[in-house]
Amino acid sequence: MPYSDKILEHYNNPRNVGSFDAKSLDVGTGLVGAPECGDVMKLQIRVNPETGVIEDARFKTFGCGSAIASSSLATEWLKGKSVDEALGIKNTQIVEELALPPVKVHCSVLAEDAIKAAVKNYQEKQEAAEPAAGEPVGAGA
């Protein structure tokens, strides 16, 4: 299968690999996919509660090179965006940027789901009021 240079570049030098403390109030965590389907993405955002801007992002992915590249790219794009802008990221933009072949489109869909899940998790934590920190939103719920 032909891979684009951009996929290979992200695969070989993935951006923002790692984890934040999922319990922290300013962190939103999205965990999507399933091991038996061959891909799982964990995507985290750290949001400035004053400005609502995503100041940092991290990911960990179990999956093929395209899944790793899609999540790596997503973390790059998330930084500096507001949470609302983050929800505007579409899988088709990822497909275009990485030149994903048709059989790999599902990797970009998963990345979009991960972004949505992370944002949702962050917002739920905020709404749950001051002291309590919620659990991460699991499995694309």
Binding site: V32, G33, A34, V40, K42, K60, F62, G138, A139, G140
Partner: peptide
């Protein structure tokens, strides 16, 4: 790998309800 990380943290990944 998020799965490897979970296992390191003692989470049983078979018990998670994956979608």
């Amino acid at each position: 790998s998020p799965l490897f990380e979970m296992v390191q943290q003692g989470i049983d990944i078979k018990k998670i309800e994956w979608a």
